[in-house]
Write a protein that binds this DNA or RNA. Structure first.
Lengths: 163, 163
DNA sequence: GGCTATCAGTTCGAAAAAAGAACTTAATTC
DNA sequence: GAATTAAGTTCTTTTTTCGAACTGATAGCC
């Protein structure tokens, strides 16, 4: 498949990656969740080429993950805010952070931690079943065609079995 | 920052992306979760340049996400299996799939669905707090330096506030 | 032995994307 | 007019991916 055709793949991961899969994009989104909103701030924190940053911000805006919001009129200035669509990437961000905390930290532990203000604890996420509330274990999941599946959906033989 | 320095960033997301952030890598991992194990199978499903695929498989193996396991001896053949470290990417995969299901599907719905065999339902994931069990809402989370934080960790001003 | 097939890569030239730096535009202030 | 701020845009070079072919190590068949 071609990278630019990801959004047409019969697979939601591929479609997601068509929006967030380019180099640096998830780090831009991370910074949005940390409250960063302005071009110069992103640029200073990320230290990436300005035109790459501009490209990523533009694509996220076009995809509806970010919205440009004016913060002053004279001269007109805009900043980038997460939309609800963008905020909905939070579980993915948490999962990726938790994985990095666990597998990519040294003996000193994770560089940052997240506090759940509702209960007051420093915490991590657990991905549970929306139907029964049990944690989702890959060995207990099977995959099947969904309502939007094309007639010739290519699922490998082992799709219903343990990875 | 430079892409090849991601694993040294004081941020677990960046460190995670140093392993899974290259173009195509997450789709390789998706296929692993679907039970795909062999080079030709990955190649046939993904349709990407063979040396890019080989590079991604190699990097994932070096990072400990995949393990090469012999499946025959004459001639010796090996396949790629998710390790525990690799399986631990499941919550992230589910979150990304769910996001794509919700925001990147047409009116006909998602192309694939996941059945939780424990309860028997077609389902999605919910990211909940490991401490209190409530769903994690980005507006209820704050970020702070962790035990492995460097002395000069750069958290933006708004890091404790709503995104 | 030669040929074909299978499998898992590796190599090579072309195209695309990212890196690095400078420039542009549109204000505002002194 | 010059300097500053902010948000980009343009240009050249380097790196990564694309597309295709090739290689190496078997095994089986004639």
């Amino acid at each position: 498949m071609r990278w630019e055709e990801l959004d047409r793949q019969p697979c939601s991961l591929a479609r997601t990656l068509s929006v967030i899969g380019d180099r640096w994009t998830l780090l831009v989104i991370r910074d949005c969740f940390l409250g960063v909103r302005r071009f110069e701030q992103f640029e200073a924190r990320l230290g990436i080429a300005r035109h790459v940053l501009a490209d990523r911000l533009k694509k996220l805006t076009e995809a509806g993950v970010l919205a440009k919001v004016p913060y002053q009129e004279r001269p007109r200035r805009e900043e980038y805010r997460l939309t609800e669509k963008g905020l909905a990437l939070h579980p993915a961000l948490i999962a990726l952070l938790d994985w990095g905390d666990r597998y990519m930290s040294g003996p000193e532990g994770a560089p940052m931690q997240r506090r759940h203000r509702t209960c007051g604890h420093v915490t991590q996420g657990i991905m549970v079943c929306a139907e029964c509330g049990e944690p989702l274990d890959p060995r207990e999941m099977s995959v099947e065609p969904g309502p939007g599946a094309p007639g010739d959906l290519a699922l490998p033989e082992r799709a219903g079995k343990t990875p």
